[in-house]
């Protein structure tokens, strides 16, 4: 019985993550439009897009292509289940951050396998750019995660949230300021927002990995991006803003972070890959290292 209850709850969390992610993307498009002084699509535009995509026919390049793209989305959904969302914490005992990060790598591996098995060189170039960029932003992010680990002397997110309870002042955001800034920039890279979206550059490599995705595969890609937004911002909230008493505050906090990323996205042009990686290894890494030194000494 317990298993069945947990199953329902995890489906709920999965659905929540998809809908919140799509909502964030819709609102994001609205805000970017507002920045461009135009009206922009209705906030639920992304829901419409997803439904349209799933109703369109599509072409596929073999079972590795289908398997890969489905794996991409479902691995992220599996990772979301372990994320403590507000007061819903399905598996408190083993919500270890490293495990969630590695499950996300499973999603990237799945998507990468699917996309590059299509045989379109644009797709593989996109993937190689995305992976190089991942190498870029993972370095400061790792520095921050492990300094939080050592600061809170624990590896599981539930304990980290518990360590930050009680008022705004002892949020990690305040106690580890440099770490938060470095993580914020790394988040920009993780979400694939504008300065770091060289992987899906429509002009240079015909929208990179998505070049061969049509119909429902593009739908899966969009779902993966949505769940990815929810997951990454969710991790940041749990790490730095002390989780949330209930789901709505959690979503609002997530939106705060996403909002910053949106503003940066609307303005900055796109980096070249090596510029992006070397940027990530200059200032954010420096901040992360300073934070680590502070924590260790």
């Amino acid at each position: 019985m317990m298993f069945f209850l947990k199953l329902i709850q995890s489906i709920g969390v999965g659905a929540l993550s998809i809908s919140v992610g799509l909502l964030f993307m819709g609102i994001g498009r609205k805000i970017t439009a507002r920045i461009h002084r135009r009206y922009g699509p209705p906030a639920i535009q992304n829901f419409i897009d997803v439904f349209k995509l799933f109703s369109k026919n599509s072409i596929s390049h073999g079972f590795a292509y289908d398997l890969g793209i489905i794996a991409g989305t479902s691995a992220l959904l599996a990772a979301v289940v372990f994320l403590p969302v507000g007061q819903i914490n399905l598996f408190p005992a083993n919500s270890s951050l490293i495990m969630i990060l590695y499950l996300m790598t499973m999603a990237y591996l799945g998507m990468a396998m699917g996309v590059s098995s299509s045989g379109n060189p644009n797709a593989t170039i996109g993937i190689s750019r995305a992976l190089t960029m991942m190498m870029g932003y993972k370095v400061p992010f790792a520095a921050v995660i492990f300094s939080v680990y050592i600061f809170a002397r624990t590896g599981s997110l539930t304990n980290i949230i518990a360590a930050q309870s009680g008022g705004l002042l002892n949020w990690n955001m305040i106690r580890l300021p440099f770490g938060f800034i470095a993580a914020e920039i790394a988040l920009q890279g993780m979400l694939g927002e504008k300065p770091f979206d060289m992987a899906i550059a429509p002009a240079e490599i015909a929208s990179g990995p998505m070049v061969e995705m049509s119909g429902k595969y593009l739908g899966f890609g969009m779902l993966q991006h949505a769940v990815g937004i929810f997951l990454e911002t969710g991790i940041m909230v749990n790490l730095f803003m002390g989780g949330a008493p209930n789901v709505w505050i959690f979503v609002i906090k997530q939106f705060e972070l996403f909002f910053i990323a949106l503003l940066v996205n609307a303005i900055l042009p796109r980096f070249r890959v090596e510029e992006g990686v070397s940027f990530m290894w200059k200032i954010p890494l420096l901040l992360g290292v300073i934070q680590a030194l502070i924590v260790v000494l």
Partner: peptide, 14 residues
């Protein structure tokens, strides 16, 4: 969702 058809490796948008 809607059905998909398999396509050879040359038929991609390059």
């Amino acid at each position: 969702s809607a059905k998909h058809k398999y396509v050879s490796q040359e038929d991609n948008y390059t």
